[in-house]
Design a protein around this nucleic acid. Sequence first.
DNA 1: CTAGAGCGCTCG
DNA 2: GTACGAGCGCTCTAGC
Length: 933
Amino acid sequence: MTFGKGHHLHLIDGSAFIFRAYHALPPLTRKSDGLPIGAVSGFCNMLFKLVEDNAGPDAPTHVAVIFDHSGKSFRNDIYDKYKANRPPAPEDLVPQFPLTRDATRAFNIACIEVENYEADDIIATLACKARDAGGRVTIISSDKDLMQLVGDGVEMLDVMKNKRIDRDGVVEKFGVGPERVVDVQALAGDSVDNVPGAPGIGIKTAALLINEYGDLDSLLARAEEIKQPKRRQTLIDNAELIRISRDLVKLDCDMDLDISLDDLEVREPEAEALLEFLASMEFRTLTKRIADKLGVDTPVIPDTPRAIEAAQADAPDAPPITPDSYEWVKDAAALKEWIDLIYSRGWVAIDTETTGLDEMQADLVGISLCVNAGHACYIPLAHKASAGDDLFASDALAEGQMDLETALEMLKPVLADPSILKIGQNLKYDAKILKRYGLEMAPIDDTMLMSYALHAGEHGHGMDTLSDRYLSHEPIPIKSLLGSGKSAVTFDKVPIEDAVKYAAEDADITLRLWQLFKPQLHVKQVTTVYETLERPLSPVLAQMEMNGVMVDRDVLSRMSNAFAQKMAALEAEIHEKAGQPFNVGSPAQLGEILFDKLELPGGKRGKNGKYSTGADILEDLATEHELPGLVLDWRQLSKLKSTYTDALQDHINPETGRVHTSYVQTGANTGRLASTDPNLQNIPVRSEEGRRIREAFVAPEGKVLASLDYSQIELRILAHVAGIDSLKQAFRDGLDIHAMTASEMFGVPIEGMDPMVRRQAKAINFGVIYGISGFGLARNLRIPRKDAQEFIDRYFERFPGIRSYMDETVAFAKEHGYVRTLFGRKIHTPEIAAKGPKAGFAKRAAINAPIQGTAADIIRRAMIRMPAAIEGLPAKMLLQVHDELIFEVEEQAAEETIERVRNVMETAAAPAVHLDVPLVVDAGTGRNWAEAH
DNA sequence: CTAGAGCGCTCG
DNA sequence: GTACGAGCGCTCTAGC
């Protein structure tokens, strides 16, 4: 049978269906694993309704669902900004795109998409073919771009409004017949698709002009005749843009399709395949309805959520992880194919290989990509030829590599494309490397951050850990390629064939982890944490790290020399008092001197049978002998010199003259950041001598450093979460909280309070945050344990809400295995069920985590909002130290900057959380960090 | 020679 | 046996 007169073709605009379904329905998720399926559900219902409605006399004989092939089309070659303003598809819709194709096939309906073309072109080509063959066509869509096809037996049907659109309908909408629709659209433009058109001309005016002049070409040719000066000028000025617009809106009726109309003949669904699909989506109602209609038994959909392991076993289509499937991309043609694949998929896992771990200095060596489990490649860009390959130049590049600049030029639009999701493991690293090469990357998903949101406290979040744990696969160790220690080489020396296996595997593993984690975010109810506290922070940190802080080498160097001299003098004195030379830096040797040779009291041995010689012990011994005090002085200098004045100099970047720390977003289980290489969160401040190190952290000429820190944020949070009215009121009244505590506990007036009493209250306040114990407080205050316990008892008596908060928190942790911050962050406490000393640790950690974690969440929220808040000011955010943010700002803008930053910090909890206590931020500025703090 | 544990000290 | 959360430099030793 050949398609012809008497036949009726239905062409369904699949993409329109998907978006309509997505927006019409709440965000449904599959019960077993949280996979978002709202759009698929709506899509299936719409398909089913069509099938049901197709029983009547007007039923189609042929039907097809047409989809847009994701990514770019030939129209982008005509006009590169085509559809450029279109926002990316929502996160939870992206994984549903392929499922709607599966659904179409499950209904046994032809499913068509063609690379480089839009659905509208395929619809146009099929509609023209069918019309020419003498058949009828109904286009099921409300897209006005398709109205140019109406007429001669072609109609549109808007299923939502249940309205047919024929020739008259088109005239009603455009003021012209279908054959002139393109002309009107070319003039009017379309802001949604970013079709330029002629500025100032809308559909009404366009129709008027076309009706007057006949068609677009005549209009443009006779533009001079137009009476209205503005219209005349805009048509003359924009003639070229208008012609381009016409090319953009004109649908291609003459595509080469390898499918014929006869292939589209209506087929009955195959019950088994359709029901299997519906059951796999866990659509209970629809499965039953369709099973009933088809007259077969409804398949059973299990109610119990599957475990992760089951979900994995459930995906037999994921091929095993093997280097055999990885591709070595050698030239632009091969890379182009990968880029096309990325566009067709909508996402890509990416990983960069470099010559080192310092993102501010390492060079790019290659890039790996993965679009699908097992489908990965490596693009080597700067591998060196091995010595044997080229006798003349040892730094010659190896064969089989494409030009680095060409590759980056090709990848640049993909990485910046808002419709392409870039997936990585610790993407901040790759983003910084690529940024140094001029490439921006957005939007992103980071499997490390996902793991952190899901599993903080349960395990680490490095790729090796995750791969082993969730994919049961041990990745190729980097050491097997680079070696280790002195003989280690950089990645550019690795033979490319080895690099391909290693690098592509990393991208492959990352993509697989993403596929596992993404749906889990919903299931574990940490989507908001991930989306609002993790994902948006990563680029902010990257920018801070790249900003760096200026450090004055000379200041450090001078201090270092001074320390060295003092240490030498102390060392001589120490040896003299000890009666023999020994390594003062060796606790083991010191212990023997103190406790064996000098026979001082209190020698306690640690785990390895060595004496403990910690500061607290030496302080106690200082009353017995001169030696311990000298050692303490020596240790302070030694610490300052080695960790700060010496090591810090090595971290000054030779190109920027600044120190660029790295923040580990997943470093602390509570949500705090960790700072490494170097750690700038533990620069001395408590001792006078140590604080001087901060004088080396400076602002350049004409600028100052501004430091803003939350005052007592953790105690404020404690007052809020434990609901202690008197503490909350004290914070509202701006009282000295430690003095107030002392006053409440001991019944003494705040005025003229003994500083010792206040100090004890302060220790108790902090102790509470840490999960207080009599032993700990006793040791901290150096008072008998009994006295400490009395203090604690009295404290709980006065603030009973604190005790119940602690008890409830521990009970919650025992029941659920985790605790939560006010913003929903989960911190797992797997040891809470343990016996013995571990239980104590876990209990205190569980008490502390919601407090410390909520404070961490608040400053994260402030940091995420900060770039927008200081936009336009000559100010840069440089550092975070848990409750403090440090900025570098031009002197005359310091006041304005502080005002804006303070405002963001003080309101950072809102609107997600309303605190019963105010957040207060102290601020200071100075030429260096010591002055600013 | 190297990796890792343990100690001790720095910060919030 | 004990305050909560981190990173890093040094010493020392087990194991290649």
